[in-house]
Design a binder for these strands. Sequence first.
DNA 1: GTTGTTACCTGTACGC
DNA 2: TGCGTACAGGTAACAA
Length: 262
Amino acid sequence: MPELPEVETVVRTLRPAIAGRRILNAEFTQLRVLLGSPLTTAEALAGRRIEGVERYGKFIAIRLDRGYLVVHLGMTGKLLIDAPSTKWTHAVFTLDRGVLHYDDQRQFGRIEYGAKLPERVAALGPEPLDIPLEDFAARLKARHAPIKAVLLNQAVVRGVGNIYADEALFRAGVHPKRLANSLRRDRVERVWNAMREVLAEAIESRGSSVSNYVDAEGRKGSFQLSHRVYRRTGQPCVKCGAAIKRILVAQRGTHFCPKCQR
DNA sequence: GTTGTTACCTGTACGC
DNA sequence: TGCGTACAGGTAACAA
């Protein structure tokens, strides 16, 4: 499932492959993933030059000479360069050199063309790797909700998903159900540090390949090998040996160490 | 405005 | 073998 480190890895592999290219043709075969009319979108995209590829949290914004092509990978979305079509190929962008495919088994992903950056992208919170501690602390103070739910809230910080929320809270030693506005200052700082640390390490490892995640070149990441709690239910905690527990927080499977996280 | 719940979707794992 | 069920979780829409 693509979260910030996975999307960042996709962007980094996509950028050199498509920046400077021109879109000759866009074809949409599965309309569920497209926001807007296929005809209008294809017309808007034809002839556009790709100026850059940017990431906003988990959103990919392909900046064109006129407007943006915005892609969210959902759970199983893939942007692939020069890959063969499959039964899950929903969009094909023919470039002046090469072809860009959008594949998505579970169809939770979305593609959208906009003359401007869409409002739902512009409204996202700050990047977790850029947010100053003071700003982060103020945002937590304003939330009377479990810290795990707050980290998943894209309006608070953008890009953290289920894997990295669990991993960050483990590293910080904070229980996922602790209310965000009840955290002492030193705890807030530990969460802030742990969040940044785990995201940076995951980017270094080219993301976590659980489910079927691959980058734009079809390569897997390796950070799943470094997960300390995520999907390790019943296995011993790497710090204290206690069995990792799984509970539901914000309707999400949540993994934590009952001894290390209070 | 904030918080919590549900729907969407398919592949995989598991029990019987 | 085959069936039913639980689980995986991103955002959006809705209720409270």
